[in-house]
Structures are given as structure tokens and as C-alpha cells.
Design a protein around this nucleic acid. Sequence first.
DNA 1: CGGATTTGACCAGCGC
DNA 2: GCGCTGGTCAAATCCG
Length: 599
Amino acid sequence: MEAAAPAFGRPRPVVKPEKPAGDSDDDRDSPSNQHLLIKRENRAKEENESEDKTSHSSDQNDLRCTKIQEEQLESARTEMGEVREENQRLKMSLGQIMKDYEALKMQFLGIVGREAKKLPEHNKEQQQRPHDDQTEETELVSLTLGRYPMAEKKKAVEEKNINGGDKEEVVKQALSLGLNCKFEQESTAATVKEANSPNRSLTISADHETKEDAGETNWPPSKGLKTMRSVDDDALPTNPPKRARVCVRARCETTTMNDGCQWRKYGQKIAKGNPCPRAYYRCTGSPTCPVRKQVQRCADDMSILITTYEGNHNHPLPASATAMASTTSAAASMLLSGSSTSSAPNTTAAASSSSSSSSHALSFYSNSKQNFYLPNNSSIISSTSPTHPTITLDLTSNPSSSSSNPSTHFGKFPSSFPNSRYPFTSQLDFGSSRNNVLSWNNGVLSYNRNNHPTTTPTNNIYQNYLQHQRNTAMSLPHQQPPLPDTIAAATKAITADPSFQSALAAALTSIIGSGGTSAGTVKSSARGEQPLFQLTSTATTTTNKGNGCGTSFLSNITTATPSNSPPTGNMAFVPANSLPFSNPKSASASPGDHIDLTN
DNA sequence: CGGATTTGACCAGCGC
DNA sequence: GCGCTGGTCAAATCCG
């Protein structure tokens, strides 16, 4: 094992028993053997000298010399034996380390495999015992940052169960790789009983949220929602988990970021510690959509807009809305590990883990071969709490600042920022990545395809995955249209980042090794990795109210596709009528006028 | 005129 | 219990 070697600190002589010392250059290089060789050479010299000097000496001298030689030989043999013993010991310890490593590896794979097997079983249980949902869901967290109501999810699960093997294998595959998250649109397939699992899985579901969504189909919730919440609280007197939030910080001069969704402002409030009013928006994409967002300027830096998303969309999202989803989904995946390592055990941990599920209320894909890319110069900060787990995606940080310690980031937040209230934090810093994948550009959140025009092997795999998704969609006419490839692309991108993987590995290690009780600050250290691909787009504003902060990158998501030509690939999955841009009266989809990006 | 926004009031949660 | 704060409602207002 390569990893074990540096642990010894310095090169040690490893002499193979069947191979006499000094037979090879390697042996010659080892200090002990060099010592022996020197001795041998000295002995030979002495012998030669004694031969020269005493060529005519008496037999007594010969005998004396022979005795000395024999003694020296004996001591040399003893030394060699000691060295061999030492080498044997080292070999044994190395073998032991290898065994331990393999055992741990198998243990980990076994755990992951069991969790993968559990998922479909648990889904079946959920279907067979729908009345238990309310009690069970409190213990569940879901990877689905989904936009689908529970009924649709269940339908999807049924379809999955019918289709059987393939998809389950996909889940297993994703889980077995460990360092790659599996995010699925209908994530009930990725549901685990976390409370019963000694080793928390990365696969976490937020059925709490799903339940809320199912209950909130009678929007507006207003007092009805309050009533439902109180009922939930009664059912869960201890630590009733609230919606998780995803907070996005970006430099934007507009009143709100255009994230592609349609929003209606329903309130405004001056929050304590911030002279800037906080605006409350509600998603109008669907009359029953429970998603809300809060928009507030940063008190420290008025140019920074803090947008907090809460809830799950229960309607098809506009293509442009998936950009933010990609970003926040990546953030949420971070929160998975971060919250698990920082929260209190058992139910509290589960509740905090559920926070990851709300990420902008968007589902996203990621299988073993699909990876996220976080935006360049962005950092993710998650704060977990039983009540308001929040993960923050900071799109404002520059490379130098983003690589600083976490406290630097926290210092940038206003006093009213949720992080100040929820002490458990973890940070994953991706600001060091060189290549932009997601960026704010002239007021538009845009993906950038970089200078890797040729399709990488991973990209091929990704294309295969897309094709598979298309086929699946074709064969399942009742299924909701899958998310566009931007999400998958983001999924692919972020998990392809070694930084992410190492951070995730660290989180995994802490979860498995310590049962999730260790305080977690995970920070990526790798930098300068070349992403497998990168998306670029010019900032073509397609929103209805000008060129505010937006996510209209999808109109030219691929370099092969001209920006004004019909979208290709998974773009076809986005229902045309779901695009908000055709509606000139959309509320606050893009009221802005300019965005100033410091990335 | 219909829909979006504004804004004061109300309510719930939390800390002291 | 009281006050503070965040979040939401809904009537009034604005706007295209």
C-alpha cells in the first residue's frame, strides 16, 4: 500500500530473505548493508595489506589472521541476521497494515452495500405502511431536494420497483463508490432509516420535508399551514425540525437574483442588525408551491445579496431555475456530511441532516459517474440546527479570501445571518478551483464550458447517462420530466472535484469512524484541479424584465449549440410551457438590472 | 381591471 | 409573563 509507506517517515531496509544482502543495488543503498559492505572492503584491504607486509611471515601470523577473519565474519553474519530479522518485522507490520486497510475497506463497502439494499426495502415498507409515514418520516432525511410531491415520488418508487434491477444497481453502484453522492429525482429510492443505522449513510432523506410538501398542497398555507405545523409539533414535541434552508450569497445590484423561478413578494421586514429590509417572496410557479425565499442585502457589504430558499417546489421547474439548483444542490451535498459530523446524536442528527434536502427545493441527479462542480470562488458554509439547518453558498468570495480559514467567512456575515445562531458549522471551500463552472456573468448566473472541447471519458459516461435518462423518460410517459442536464452536469462536476471527494471522504471517515459525533470542519485543500468539463455561456438575458441577476444560461448550455438555437440534450426534458419567460407579468423573476461579480 | 407590491397588524417562538 | 424578533397576512395601493 502506498499510503502506508510514508507513515514510516524514512526509508527502511527491506531485505528479502531469499536474497542475500548486497546482491542488488537497492540493498547496496540501504544504510545497514552499506555498513556491511564497508566492513567487508576494510577487511579485504586489511587482508591485502597483511599479505603484502607479511608475505614472508610465520605460520603464527597466518593463524592469527585467520582467527581475526573468522571473528569478523561471525560478527558480520550476526549483523546480517539482525537486519534480516528487522526486515521480517517490518514486512510483518506492513502486512498487518495492509490487512487492516483491506478489512476497513471491506467494512466500509459492506456498510455502503447494506444501505443500498436497505433502500428499496424501506421504500416498500413505506408503501405498505402509509399510515406510519408520519412517525417514521421524522427520522428520515432525503437526498431529494425535490420538486415532486409525495404522491409522485411514490409513483416513481413503484415504477422503480417494477423496473427493478437496473436502477437498484445504479443506486448500489453510486453508493458503493462511496465518494460519489447519489442524488435522484425521486429519492425515496434513496431513503434509509437513519436512526436504525449505526453508521450514518450519505444517503439521507428528508421525508419530513416531503411530508410538509404533501400537506401543503393546499397553499396558501397561511393559518392553515400554521395549524398543520402545530399539529406536527404536537406529534414531535422534541426538536420539531423545520425546513432546511439554502442561502446563496452573490454580488448583485438588483433587488433580487433572477434564479429562473417566478416569485411574488408577500412581505417585507426590517431585520434586526441590518438596515436593509428583508423581502419575502413566494414561488408562483404553481399556486400550491410552498417554496419561499427571503432576500436581503448584506449589512456589511450592500452589494452582496443574500437569498435564502426554503421548501420544495411541487411543480416542474423552469430550465433556468435549475442553475441555482445545481449550485445549492452541491451545497446541500456538503451539508450532508457536514451536519452529520457536527450535530448531536440520533434524532437531532437526523434532523440536521435533513437540512440538506431542501437545497433550493430542487431535485438533482448524481450517480457514481456524475459529479458536481461548485462555482469557482465559491464556498459553502453549512450551519445545522434542529430547527433551521442552513447551508450557505457564498458566490462572492475571491480565491484568496475563500481559501482562508472558516472564521473569515463567518465574519463576513451580518449579525442576522443564520449562521450566527447555529453554531455547528462546516465549511467546504472550493474557491481554489481554477476554472469557473458556474459563474455570475453580467447579471446572469451562467455555466461555463471551458477549454476542454473534446469529450472526456467521464463525459462519455455522462452522455450515456443522459441517454439513459432520456430512454427512461420515453418509456415512462407518466413520469415527471427529468431535470435538465444542467443539474446532472453540476452533479457530475462537483463530485468530480477531488476537493469535494476528499472532503467527502473526510466526512465519511468521521461518520463511519466516530459515529458522527465528531465536530466537523471539513475543508478541501486540493487546488488547481482541471475539471472534466466546463460550461460557458454568454450572458444572454432571457428573462422578462430585463437583465437582472439570472440563470438563463440554459439557452446556450453547450458550446456546440448556438445560443439562439433550440436547446439540445436534456433540455428537451424541460417542458416548454414551464419556462417563465413567456409570461410578461411574472412577478419578480428578474427585476434586476445589473450584477457586479467579483468572482 | 387584474395582478403585483406595499405596509401595518397579527401571531408564534424564544430569551430573559 | 413580557418583550423582542421573525414570519405572515391582508387591505390598500400601484402599475401595466
